[in-house]
Design a protein around this nucleic acid. Structure first.
Lengths: 123, 123
DNA sequence: ATTTTACCTCTACATTTGTAGAATTAAATT
DNA sequence: AATTTAATTCTACAAATGTAGAGGTAAAAT
């Protein structure tokens, strides 16, 4: 089952912290912070969905993500691509480079990555 | 207001068809097709949200999207990037080229686009 | 003209999501 | 030891979402 928007946001914090107690999580939020119980509810739901687990330390828990950000995102992206670009990553890539305003430096960086990829592919 | 997953799917059909009567839309769906009333409900909600409009033809309507797929997607993508890559499109780009398995041809195509972009940027 | 079909509106209802109070408990502080 | 604090579970509830039946009507087919 997928995470909702708000749950995803919480995941971001967990990914960042790796391991976190309730208070660490709360700290991550900007003012006005959500109620502790709100976070608790979200964490429980996320645990049920299989995205989060925790180690019990005395009365409280240290939460951690069960899925890597990269993996989660990868799926996400594939869904997006499938949905919007008939499953064609290259079509997406072209769209992407046109639509996002990358600076020259960023474009060059990206080209470097591509060249590296090409090299890797061919030996 | 954003579209939900199912509404987005319907949008895809509208984007594809440009203009569509109920039956044209229904046709787009695979078996088992949703009930007409389901689509009708979605269309009404989407109209309320400002994503869809229609021309009345006698008793029925020809629906059409009010937002271009590119624009919708662009926003979408920016949200994603902001969320997952601290607002850094280049970080995203690098992730993207690594994670999606683009073929050599696709990579080369992409590089061409980048070069073009670079040229355009520097006029 | 009568029946069938297509499509619209209204209503409904279960599920998911966003948010949080109340009650409880264990740990920390005074 | 008594009180305060932090965290958990339970319960709640409104809004959004997915799905569709009932009922009505205009257009099309017989």
């Amino acid at each position: 089952m997928k995470l909702s928007k708000t749950e995803e946001q919480l995941m971001q914090h967990l990914w960042k912290l790796q391991k976190a107690f309730m208070k660490d999580i709360l700290e991550q939020y900007d003012e006005p912070k959500p109620a502790t119980t709100t976070i608790a509810t979200l964490l429980k739901r996320m645990t049920d969905k299989g995205y989060v687990s925790y180690t019990t330390f005395g009365k409280s828990r240290e939460y951690y993500p069960l899925i890597k950000k990269e993996d989660y995102f990868s799926n996400h992206l594939n869904g997006l691509i499938k949905n919007f670009f008939n499953d064609s990553a290259s079509q997406f890539a072209s769209f992407f480079t046109k639509e996002t305003n990358l600076s020259d430096t960023e474009l060059k960086e990206l080209r470097k990555i591509i060249d590296q990829q090409l090299k890797d592919n061919n030996q």
